[in-house]
Amino acid sequence: MIFDELVVTINALDNLKKKTDLKNNKALQDNTDAKYRLLLSQTNSYISTIEYVYTNVPYAKNIEILTATLELLDNLEKVIESGAANQEEVSKAENVYKTLCTTIKKEWSKKYSDLTGSTISTLEAIKGIDSENVNACLQKIQTASEWDVGIDRFKNMLQGIASAEQLIQKLGLDDEIILFLQNTNAGKATLLDLNDKVLNWIRSEKLENKIRISFVRK
C-alpha cells in the first residue's frame, strides 16, 4: 500500500518535472528567438545604413568592416541551421555585431571630422553674417556627428554640407576672406588683415556696421 502510493507520488513528480522542463525550455527558446529577431532587425538597419554611406558619402570602403559584415551574415545563417534558433550561435552573432558597431563608430568619428571640419569652421566664421541659415546648416551637418544606424542622419549631413557650400558661394568667400572672418570671430583680426580684397568684400556685403575694431589690452 505504502509502496504503491510512493510509486504514484514518484510518477507524479516525474511528470511534473517533465512539464516544468518543457515549460522552461520553451521560455528559453522563446527568449532566444526574440533575441535572434532583434539581431536580424538591427543587422538589416546596419546594412541599409552602410550601403547608403558607402554609396553617397565620399568614404573609402573599409575591407575589414565589409569582411566582418559578411562574417555576421554567415553567423546569422548558422543560428537556424537546426531549424530553431540556437542560443550559443545567437550569442556569437551578437558579439560580432557589437564588435562591428564599435569599429565603425571609431572610424566614422575621424571620417566625420575630415568630411565636415572645414565646412563647419567656415560656417562658424560667417555666423555673424547670416546666423539663421548658418545654424540651419550646422544643425543638419551635426546630426551625423556620431555613427548610428539609420540613413536619415547621413542624408541630413549631406544636405547640410550642400546648403553650406551654396551659402559660402553666394557670399563670394575665398580662403583669404574666410581666414579674416575666422580671425575676427576669434578676436585675432587686426588692421593688417584688412587688405583691398577683404575691404571690398565687406563693402559689397554691407558688413561695415557688423565688424568692430578694438585695441589689444597688454
Results as ranks from 00 to 15, higher is better:
8 V>M: 06
9 T>K: 12
10 I>D: 11
17 K>P: 12
20 T>H: 10
22 L>V: 01
22 L>G: 15
23 K>Q: 12
24 N>L: 12
30 D>P: 03
31 N>K: 13
32 T>M: 05
33 D>V: 06
34 A>S: 12
35 K>S: 12
36 Y>M: 04
36 Y>I: 01
37 R>K: 14
40 L>M: 13
40 L>A: 14
41 S>Y: 09
46 Y>V: 03
48 S>W: 01
48 S>I: 02
49 T>E: 03
50 I>A: 06
52 Y>K: 05
53 V>D: 09
54 Y>Q: 14
54 Y>F: 14
55 T>N: 10
56 N>A: 09
56 N>D: 08
56 N>C: 09
57 V>D: 07
57 V>T: 11
57 V>L: 07
58 P>I: 02
58 P>F: 09
58 P>G: 09
61 K>W: 06
65 I>D: 06
69 T>A: 02
71 E>V: 08
72 L>Q: 03
74 D>V: 00
74 D>A: 10
74 D>F: 03
75 N>P: 00
76 L>K: 01
77 E>N: 14
78 K>W: 07
85 A>R: 01
87 Q>V: 02
87 Q>G: 07
88 E>M: 07
92 K>T: 14
92 K>M: 14
93 A>G: 10
94 E>C: 09
94 E>H: 09
103 T>P: 03
103 T>N: 11
104 I>M: 01
104 I>F: 07
105 K>D: 15
107 E>N: 08
108 W>C: 04
108 W>P: 03
112 Y>Q: 01
113 S>K: 07
114 D>S: 15
117 G>D: 07
117 G>V: 05
117 G>K: 01
118 S>P: 04
119 T>P: 13
123 L>K: 00
125 A>E: 00
128 G>A: 02
128 G>T: 01
129 I>M: 09
131 S>C: 06
132 E>M: 11
132 E>D: 13
137 C>Y: 02
142 Q>H: 13
143 T>I: 05
145 S>Q: 08
147 W>P: 06
147 W>Y: 15
148 D>I: 00
150 G>F: 00
150 G>Q: 01
153 R>M: 09
154 F>P: 07
156 N>D: 15
157 M>E: 07
158 L>M: 12
159 Q>S: 15
163 S>L: 05
164 A>G: 13
170 K>V: 08
170 K>L: 14
174 D>A: 06
177 I>W: 05
177 I>D: 05
179 L>E: 11
179 L>V: 03
179 L>R: 10
184 T>W: 00
184 T>P: 02
185 N>G: 10
186 A>V: 01
189 A>V: 00
191 L>A: 11
192 L>W: 04
199 L>N: 12
199 L>I: 05
199 L>G: 15
200 N>V: 03
202 I>K: 03
202 I>M: 06
202 I>Y: 07
202 I>C: 09
205 E>I: 02
206 K>Y: 11
207 L>I: 05
209 N>R: 13
212 R>D: 15
216 V>H: 11
217 R>Y: 12
